[in-house]
């Protein structure tokens, strides 16, 4: 009988499915409101350096543009330095690290301080505090084939959030008056770099957080100067982020 129901449903009659953006938006908003630190930590992790330094290079420096600096004003800078090149069965070993900071919060905090000094009334609805992060680790890259390298890496990624809102802001029926979170987590990263053409690579990576079992997946189309792709935090409030970053190597 259920086979008949199945075939009936395939015929198109009951194929109703709605896109209710309002309830979905509220659900995502509530998720951010109840775990703002987790959401900000996702943004921080989008600033991390991901792709191993290209063979023949000594170091890589990178700046992430989307979706960190724009639109969240989370500005970051990171670098990778080769300790050893791949040789005689040894992998390429490099250390990497970076820092990031939310500039909007610094700007607003500065305005408030300025307002207090000058006696001007510009601190209303303002926010003080700081959001800053750092990450560092060690990464190895092994040639599995002339056109493919496998990456194994270990990383520590930390975020400090201390923000106070002079007037609580409402989000999805909840209100937030302050956020104070320190998150530090160790990650195991497994990835692969596939050669596509002259200085163009496809890089895929999966990360696992040892403390909270956080999962992330990254897909990066790496070019001469620009890296673009997307990052997925399956358990995050906003699951998928398109990414764009600039890099240069030495």
């Amino acid at each position: 009988m259920s086979l008949a129901l199945f075939l009936l449903s395939l015929s198109g009659a009951p194929l109703k499915a709605d896109l209710n953006w309002t309830t979905k938006g509220a659900a995502i908003g509530l998720e951010i409101a109840t775990n703002p630190g987790g959401f900000l930590y996702d943004i921080h992790q989008l600033n991390e350096t991901v792709v191993p330094t290209r063979p023949g290079r000594r170091a890589t420096f990178s700046v992430q543009m989307l979706p960190t600096f724009l639109p969240f004003t989370m500005a970051g800078f990171s670098g990778r330095f080769n300790i050893t090149k791949e040789h005689g069965g040894w992998p390429q070993i490099e250390v990497f690290g970076g820092m990031d900071r939310m500039l909007a919060l610094d700007y607003l905090s500065g305005r408030k301080v300025l307002g207090l000094i000058n006696g001007a009334d510009i601190e209303d609805n303002s926010v003080t505090g700081l959001i800053k992060g750092r990450h560092y680790g060690i990464s190895t890259a092994w040639s599995a084939h002339p056109k493919a390298r496998v990456q194994l890496a270990y990383e520590i990624s930390a975020l400090e959030v201390g923000a106070n809102f002079s007037e609580p802001f409402a989000i999805a029926g909840s209100s937030i008056s302050s956020i104070a979170v320190n998150i530090e987590e160790q990650f195991i990263l497994v990835g692969a770099e596939l050669f596509r053409g002259d200085r163009h690579y496809l890089f895929t990576q999966m990360g696992y957080g040892l403390q909270s079992s956080k999962i992330m997946a990254r897909i990066v189309f790496s070019g001469r100067a620009w890296d673009w792709g997307f990052t997925v935090f399956p358990e995050g409030a906003l699951v998928i982020y398109p990414t764009l970053g600039f890099k240069f190597g030495l």
């Binding site: 979905k24 997925v232 399956p234 998928i240």
Partner: peptide, 8 residues
């Protein structure tokens, strides 16, 4: 509701 599905 609709949702994102993912496997990695």
């Amino acid at each position: 509701d609709f949702f994102a599905n993912h496997e990695v």
